[in-house]
Amino acid sequence: MIHHQEYSVLVVDDVADNLLLLQLVLEMEGYRVELADSGAEALSKIKESPPDLVLLDVMMPEMNGLEVTQCLRKSRELSLLPIVLITADRDIDVDQALAVGANDVINKPVDMDDLLARVGNWCPAT
């Protein structure tokens, strides 16, 4: 296992099984993981204690991942926070995600090796 304890990742998804799976995979790699099941909860947690990276589901009720990303990009203190969008919507492409301020996009179903590689781009091993 590569140790990443100094890196925190906030995983945001409205589906509990998705949250738990991503938490398990990331914690097995040594990341500190926080969970949020809505856009509003994510914004609250980020403002309270910004993580090193946000893995953010796009399709959520009330406030979707694109809207959360836009809110974060409007905040001077959080404007550089790395955000990776996760989506099952094939109509969301990298260009659209980048236009709202995301740093990357991962399509569902999530390939865990790809996920870990992309997380590692933002939270490299020490």
Rank of each mutant, 00 (worst) to 15 (best):
K47Y: 04
A125T: 10
A99C: 08
L21W: 03
R90M: 09
N103W: 00
L72K: 00
D93G: 10
K74D: 00
D14K: 06
V105N: 02
G101D: 05
R73T: 06
P82Y: 06
A97W: 11
L56W: 13
T126P: 09
G30A: 12
G30Q: 14
R76D: 08
L85C: 08
A99S: 15
S75L: 05
I86A: 09
K45P: 01
P61C: 02
D95P: 05
P50T: 06
V58F: 10
W122S: 05
D57E: 15
T69I: 07
D17F: 13
L81K: 02
Q70D: 08
L56G: 10
K74N: 08
S38A: 02
L24S: 15
D13R: 13
V100D: 14
D104A: 09
D95N: 14
Q70H: 06
S44W: 01
L78I: 03
H4L: 06
N64P: 03
G65S: 14
N103V: 01
L116V: 00
D113N: 14
P50C: 11
L53S: 08
V68Y: 08
K45Y: 04
L98A: 12
V33I: 13
T69H: 01
D52L: 03
S44E: 13
A36K: 06
E48L: 02
G30W: 13
N64W: 06
I2L: 13
S49L: 07
R73G: 05
L115R: 03
S75C: 02
L78F: 02
I2Y: 09
K74Y: 01
P51F: 11
D95F: 11
S49G: 03
A36P: 07
E27Y: 12
I86L: 14
M59P: 05
A42H: 11
D93K: 05
E29W: 09
V100C: 13
E27T: 15
Q96Y: 11
L21N: 04
V84Q: 04
L98F: 13
Q23S: 15
K45S: 06
V84I: 15
E62K: 10
E67I: 08
E41W: 00
M28V: 09
V94W: 08
G101Y: 05
E6I: 10
C71L: 02
Q70G: 07
K108M: 06
A36M: 10
D91Y: 07
V119T: 05
L85R: 10
R73P: 05
L85I: 06
V11E: 11
V84E: 05
D91G: 04
L78P: 02
R90D: 10
H4I: 02
E6A: 07
I106M: 12
V105K: 01
D114S: 11
P61K: 04
E77G: 00
A117S: 07
G65E: 13
V58R: 10
V33S: 07
A125F: 09
D93R: 09
V9M: 08
L24M: 14
K47H: 10
G65K: 09
P50Y: 07
V12T: 15
V105A: 00
L20F: 15
D111W: 03
A117K: 13
L22C: 11
E67L: 09
M1W: 11
R90K: 12
K108I: 02
